[in-house]
């Protein structure tokens, strides 16, 4: 057989066809959406002018507003994010343990935990906040619980994966000594999961700082309430102040998290 003339192909015919099918579906979906979505072209043409108007109203940023209302609201936002992250752990750790196949070996447990994790992740934090605002009334408690419930899915899933990657050697050694179930968890799994645990929690805290900044738009406390109020009153210079404060806090949170993670890992 003459191998020189053989025509090499990277993909089989079936692979090629299925790839083209995906592209085709995407193009059809895109064209269909563009045609049927209700976009008013005049608004799009008007947009640069409107944006310029908005930024010109924002420009002399109202720094005097910071000590009046923004500072307390920012502290509240940070508290919501931190406390929410801590409360998440109460629910996320048991679910992560249930979801890890090397700890609980039962399909039922996996399905139950996965159901909770997925539904926590599917519902957006603002929707969780709406739910908790209608339960507990407007205020900080709704914000904390919204952040906590939203984070369960994220923390639980990643922590479960970290537990599954544990080296089983030391676990078996502990089992061989006749250690109890609790001490296997605490002395076998926990030290190995510790770095992953801290980095997951810090990562989620960083996300939660961003998310808690907008929860106030639906009445769940924090800087979002100040932002919403000044927007409803068209005080764009105060809006700019709140946005600047959010920007600074988000950047600071990211710097803090990056530095701590560098030390830990």
């Amino acid at each position: 057989m003459n191998t020189i003339d053989h025509h090499w192909q990277r993909f089989t015919l079936k692979q090629k066809l299925s790839r083209y099918a995906v592209y085709l579906v995407l193009v059809i979906a895109f064209v269909q959406s563009i045609q049927s979505v209700e976009v008013i072209p005049e608004f799009l043409l008007d947009a640069p002018e409107q944006m310029a108007d908005m930024f010109s109203r924002m420009w002399p940023i109202d720094f005097a507003y910071y000590p009046v209302a923004v500072h307390d609201a920012m502290v509240e936002t940070l508290n919501i994010a931190t406390l929410g992250t801590l409360i998440t752990l109460i629910f996320a750790i048991p679910l992560a343990l249930m979801n890890a196949s090397n700890i609980v070996n039962s399909a039922w447990c996996h399905w139950i935990s996965r159901f909770f994790l997925v539904s926590s992740r599917s519902v957006n934090s603002l929707v969780w906040a709406l739910l908790f605002v209608s339960i507990f009334g407007p205020g900080v408690i709704a914000g904390v619980l919204a952040i906590a419930f939203r984070s369960i899915g994220f923390v639980g899933k990643l922590l479960g994966e970290a537990i599954e990657e544990v080296n089983m050697g030391s676990i078996e050694a502990l089992k061989a000594t006749g250690a109890s179930w609790m001490s296997i968890l605490l002395k076998g799994y926990w030290p190995q999961v510790l770095p992953a645990f801290f980095s997951i929690v810090l990562f989620r805290w960083d996300i939660n700082v961003r998310e808690s900044a907008v929860l106030g738009l639906v009445g769940a406390g924090g800087i979002g309430v100040v932002l919403d109020d000044s927007m409803n009153l068209f005080q764009w210079d105060r809006v700019a102040m709140s946005l600047l404060a959010i920007f600074v806090i988000v950047i600071l949170a990211e710097i803090v998290v990056v530095n701590i993670r560098k030390r830990l890992i």
């Binding site: 976009v39 008013i40 608004f43 799009l44 947009a47 409107q50 603002l126 961003r210 998310e211 900044a213």
Partner: peptide, 24 residues
Amino acid sequence: RTFHPVIIAILFVKSVGFGALAGI
């Protein structure tokens, strides 16, 4: 990446009006 999508959405709703365009 810094701002939450909701905040960006608010700014776009102000500049292009209510509706799907701001969301897109």
